[in-house]
Design a protein around this nucleic acid. Structure first.
Lengths: 242, 242
DNA sequence: CGACGATTTGAAATCAGTCAAGAGCAGTGG
DNA sequence: CCACTGCTCTTGACTGATTTCAAATCGTCG
């Protein structure tokens, strides 16, 4: 059960047993499938075991905005545990495996095991911190900086999830989807990526990213990883020094 | 002690006693004062008792982005309870009264009173939902829609906080600060507000807002209040029907 | 009154969007 | 094997929204 991944960053006691014994069902979903729709009142929360998914909202004018991108180990809709109604959609980017856990079981677990409740709360807070950085990114950075910043974030998060290195990783996004992340049109994303390629900073294809100049990219993206709150968190698969 | 306001939306038992007995210090701060700076490792969390404050970040190019706006009853930096390091600034807009509560006391309270832990977690989740809506607003709406959407949000939140009606309320923001909220320059904010005034939708001055046409404003701002998760929450000062 | 910050307005420049068309590429089915 | 189809990527020319720069006006407070 990979479920312990999502909380691995905190040194849990034998709360682990409780976590691992949560009732759940594992399902596979294809690419571009909705896991959750805005307005739903879901009875299950879910954890991504493999693959990629995004949260997004659609504005009245039809434009779509991706709110966050999720990978292995992420609790995709923890907020439903408490809020009840979904305020956004969750859609897969690739084929994924998800574990569905009843909302009531999560709420009960949080109440009976304070350390786990705190760890889930922490997850929510880190996610909120990432949202804040995206607000800054969309509100105050131009297209090149936004794109560079996003690539830096993905590089670190994927590295932490054990899904590559910051220099090379898989990222299954079309340029149109990248535009939905960055608040840009696909045409402008294309021009921006070309500029980054020509400048020798990074090379993006539909499936993968190669970062050629990490220092240059962080400078262009005005990137500082404090907001990811990685301190004290160890990459998946890397043993902790005793 | 107004502290119960922040959790009033959930019908707490005699957890209230524990909440009200939290150790705290009440302080007054002037306008434009920093309550928290990015990089701080605060030992106290704080609740706004009166006045207004914003959270903001500054990009490398010097541009400032306001991330959220807070009013009476808001827990301004709950995330520090768990995350330790501040990833943004908190600055007052007006003279404010704040109650400082030791981080350790909040963590202990959450662990010992699950209902309170859940209520604080819920606060965090609602805030994250608002961040998501702002991401959509900044990424996919033009200047007029952004401004209209923001005014609608403020109207409802201030109404819920008992600080006015959706038709008329105080909002102490300069046009430059509004620009920092909306990801626009103050010049463009000025033109946008003028357009809204001329269209008979809303009238903003430095201190207050008068909304002339609620329906028209929500249409222009593509506003739907689901993301505020107000369902089941009652306005401050309005008795709950038995 | 004088000073300072905030608002307002205009003109020019820039960034990103729109529209349109062609090229590349993968999967499908004959 | 190849033509066909659909989706993505790429590019160019043009448009439009927002920024930048600059200057005038307004309001408030000491």
């Amino acid at each position: 059960m990979l479920a312990k991944l999502e909380l691995g960053d905190r040194f849990e006691e034998q709360d682990r047993a409780a976590l691992l014994s949560l009732p759940h069902q594992i399902r596979t979903r294809g690419a571009n499938a909705y896991i959750l729709r805005e307005g739903d009142r879901p009875l299950h929360s879910c954890v991504l075991l493999s693959g990629f998914a995004v949260r997004h909202k659609v504005a009245g004018n039809g434009a779509r905005q991706i709110l966050s991108l999720h990978m292995k180990g992420d609790l995709v809709d923890l907020q439903n545990t408490i809020l009840g109604i979904a305020d956004h959609n969750v859609e897969t980017l690739t084929r994924v495996e998800v574990a569905y856990i009843p909302v009531s079981a999560i709420a009960a677990l949080a109440a009976s095991h304070p350390a786990l409740g705190k760890a889930m709360w922490r997850e929510t807070l880190v996610e909120a911190s990432i949202f804040r950085e995206w607000i800054l990114n969309l509100g105050r950075r131009n297209a090149r900086a936004r794109a560079a910043h996003f690539l830096c974030e993905m590089a670190l998060r994927l590295e932490m999830a054990g899904l590559g290195t910051r220099g090379a990783f898989e990222l299954p996004l079309t340029q149109e989807q990248l535009g939905d992340v960055l608040g840009l049109t696909s045409v402008h994303v294309n021009r921006t990526l070309k500029a980054m390629r020509v400048a020798g900073l990074a090379d993006c294809s539909r499936k993968s990213v190669a970062i050629r100049d990490w220092t240059g990219l962080t400078a262009m993206g005005d990137f500082d990883d404090t907001y990811l709150h990685l301190n004290g968190v160890n990459p998946v698969g890397v043993p902790v020094a005793a």
